[in-house]
Measured scan of single mutants.
Amino acid sequence: MSIQHFRVALIPFFAAFCLPVFAHPETLVKVKDAEDQLGARVGYIELDLNSGKILESFRPEERFPMMSTFKVLLCGAVLSRVDAGQEQLGRRIHYSQNDLVEYSPVTEKHLTDGMTVRELCSAAITMSDNTAANLLLTTIGGPKELTAFLHNMGDHVTRLDRWEPELNEAIPNDERDTTMPAAMATTLRKLLTGELLTLASRQQLIDWMEADKVAGPLLRSALPAGWFIADKSGAGERGSRGIIAALGPDGKPSRIVVIYTTGSQATMDERNRQIAEIGASLIKHW
């Protein structure tokens, strides 16, 4: 067993022997301040990774656009098919120029040779490549099948209805392509620590998230040296922004954090800054 596999296998073990965790309302004060600064709703939840206990939450059962955070769930569904012998990570998928959609920095470079399922998941999570996500959605049967996968996990809230990039439209009061912070946090925890996926697939999923290259201005910008984070960000229309993450000190994750916002007129930089400040408060009061 590799060191990384050992780390993920012992996530519940280490967490069980940690000192009790206590909620700190100071972080919620910052979440509410972010709402004021952005002029928009902000949803927040913080779960203990081992027990699933909610440590703090704000608007945990209000719907927010998922945006690209759905790509972690998508690759979880792909990995479940791999575990069941219905898919192979090494299978190569070929596609054409007509398949390319807006923001496809990886797939646009491989029109000639195609990409493997493993490479597509890596591109979808680490670079948020939209064509990679659409190609992977095709392998599982489309958005409705991802929703069905989530329902089978016990998540009857999260739903995907459309493809990239239309799913980022974020129309107010439109339930399409949305989740709730509580539902997303619980589902992410199941994917990373539950028995739904094999140990190898859980490790692969967290490795992809740990290698995320496009979430630097968010929670990662607030992390002290030595902290662990595996995350996936999302951005959408109407001032929408979000991030889902597993993080913790001492090089291992111990909490799940989900943050979503929508309806702001603020710039992307300002949305990023507010999420980073929430992260800084979380870490300060850990």
Rank of each mutant, 00 (worst) to 15 (best):
A246V: 13
Q4E: 15
N134S: 04
G43F: 00
Q86F: 10
K30Q: 10
M66S: 04
R91W: 04
T267A: 13
D207F: 10
V257K: 00
T27G: 04
S51R: 07
P60M: 13
L19P: 10
R162Y: 03
I244S: 03
Y260E: 00
V101E: 10
L10D: 03
E87K: 02
A222D: 09
L160T: 10
L282P: 00
D99L: 08
T116R: 06
P172R: 11
V8T: 14
E169K: 13
F6H: 08
G76Q: 01
G194V: 07
K144F: 15
D155Y: 01
V72S: 06
T198C: 10
Y44T: 02
R220H: 04
A185P: 00
A40P: 02
A225F: 10
C121F: 01
A200V: 10
I140R: 02
Y103N: 06
F64G: 00
G263I: 04
Q37G: 11
E237M: 15
D129P: 00
I140C: 06
A266V: 13
I11N: 05
G236N: 06
T107Q: 01
M67W: 01
K109M: 14
F14L: 09
R241C: 04
I229H: 02
D83W: 02
M268L: 10
S57P: 02
F14C: 09
E169R: 11
M268Y: 09
A246N: 05
D231S: 05
A34S: 14
Q4L: 09
G52I: 03
P253S: 09
S240I: 01
I54V: 15
E62G: 07
L120H: 03
K53R: 14
S96W: 12
N168E: 04
Q203D: 11
L89R: 03
E175C: 12
A183P: 07
N272S: 05
S221K: 13
S80L: 11
L79R: 01
L89D: 05
S254K: 14
L146H: 02
F228Y: 14
T27I: 08
H156A: 14
D129R: 00
L205K: 00
E119D: 13
W163Y: 12
S264N: 07
M1I: 07
T186E: 15
R63W: 04
E166P: 06
F13Y: 10
L74D: 00
A183C: 08
Q4T: 10
R7M: 05
N173G: 14
A170F: 11
